[in-house]
Design a protein around this nucleic acid. Structure first.
Lengths: 276, 276
DNA sequence: AGGTATTGTGATTAAGTGAGTGAACTGCCG
DNA sequence: CGGCAGTTCACTCACTTAATCACAATACCT
């Protein structure tokens, strides 16, 4: 069972790393047995025997498989560590090439933009939101209020960033949607004030069909905010994190959140404005 | 000129990292200007305006772009470092997942193989060959003869491995195809014996149409060998390294190379068997 | 307010790639 | 020489992606 899932996951990961289906399946089949002929591979994977050869050739050129040109040909996979390191270094090299290529791009000469004071930007995907959160935390000088609505968000990295902010004199205040999460956070950050949000609608929406879940709420120096939530994508059932962030003291969104945060901080009673 | 190539290279690299053509082009266009509308992007890239939106959405979900939902929408790319790090960590994570997934595979229970004494395996691609070379060098216990036919092969990593072998008591002998390369190697490895191969046909083939170039020739403990060469692939004009390695004292290939190496070592006169 | 240009969404077609299948060729065996 | 396994090649089908178009929505101008 676990092995089955390991196998399938390996195949999926290999495909995400650029291999085709047949290539991935052939490699996994070969990795399981020390060596094998095309027939063997075709049996343990579900690759048509006649196409094993193509797949192996590609794998060989990527340094993942070696071939013995006997009759029948015998193939063998390199060790797992070798294979993984090969793939990894391939991609690391590509990203580094990309870094220098992008760095060498000439900017288009365009009139420089309007001031960024009243904008609201939307981002999506865990990656980008985490990155933007980090950037905002690092830019804080006075005050930093962060409400965590989902334990998956609360990473070691985040703990470090908050602690660093605290140490450079920023007034760090964190909140959680429920007591359980609050305790967990307080344990990790003993020197920082952690509260349970008084805003009831944060933890669960009062609207019936609404199954979004607030995951982060960040207010920096009372002039920049970030809000993100998990939404159930109906297509595939994976959750996807979406968010917005805005900047500027008089930015409408910022103003609202500032007010909201103050409400949640000052009292445990929830504002009547439960809906909308 | 250089900028043009940077741009094209960026696009190509982004595609190799899993982005589609439109996505890559849109990102590069956006990276060059701080911000832009769909129209702007469509102009500086060659992406049809109406398809920019799709591309941006994907980029956004990967954390590479942020969107301002005004009218017209304005997009902006995250910083280059942020983008590259995001992509990099995505792939590093995948490779690590792969490592554990592959590690958890159950081996198929198959009768264990015939002894590996007389086999010849072929490998291809710089990656795999370098890796196999390293493995062979690390496994040497008595003697190690290495002829380097191409300066690209002679890396710092290789120097380290040879030095390590030397220090654990292996008799390391290296050779080069010409005096220039010999000097370079000798400089890096003063404590190791470096000779110029007496085998003339190593550096250039006596056959007319043959533009392959020997790149490495390795003999380990007189019982394992590796030979590799660069071949001009006629399809695209990139060079591709191909090689074979074999094991077993009485393996035919090993025997031949052993003899050959001895010839090259003992004398500067080339054996009459220049061809074939 | 009406008309026009611009912006955004969706549908549709064309082209390319990869999965799946089978025929033909090779060499090996009796 | 015929049969058989191994290998290669050519082809079809399905799916993804590139490319174009039609139309709706919105802002802008007069």
């Amino acid at each position: 069972m676990d092995n089955v899932s390991n196998q399938e996951q390996s195949i999926e990961l290999l495909q995400q790393l650029g291999l085709k289906e047949y290539e991935a399946k052939s490699f996994v089949a070969l990795a399981r047995r020390q060596r094998g002929t095309a027939k063997n591979i075709s049996e343990t994977s579900e690759v048509p025997r006649t196409r094993v050869y193509d797949a192996i050739r590609v794998l060989e050129s990527k340094g993942l498989v070696e071939t013995q040109h006997s009759n029948p040909q015998v193939f063998r996979a390199v060790t797992i560590d070798e294979a993984v390191n090969t793939l990894k270094s391939e991609y690391v090299e590509r990203t580094e090439s990309l870094r220098s290529a992008l760095g060498g791009l000439e900017p288009t000469d365009e009139e420089e933009s309007t001031d960024a004071a009243h904008e609201v930007w939307s981002i999506s995907g865990d990656q980008g939101i985490t990155s933007r959160t980090q950037q905002l935390i690092e830019g804080a000088t006075e005050e930093l209020i962060l409400v965590i609505g989902h334990e998956g968000i609360f990473t070691d990295q985040l703990v470090e960033q908050l602690r660093a902010a605290q140490e450079r004199g920023v007034n760090v205040i964190t909140g959680a949607v429920d007591e359980e999460l609050r305790t967990e956070i307080q344990d990790s950050l003993p020197e920082i004030e952690v509260f349970v949000s008084g805003l009831d609608w944060l933890s669960r929406s009062p609207l019936p069909g609404d199954n979004t879940e607030i995951s982060r709420l960040l207010l920096v120096d009372r002039e920049a905010i970030l809000v993100s939530s998990f939404t159930e994508t109906r297509d595939d059932d994976r959750e996807h994190e979406q968010g917005v962030f805005g900047r500027g003291f008089d930015n409408g969104l910022v103003a609202i959140v500032r007010r909201l945060m103050a409400t949640g901080l000052l009292s445990g009673n929830d504002p009547e404005t439960g809906e909308a």
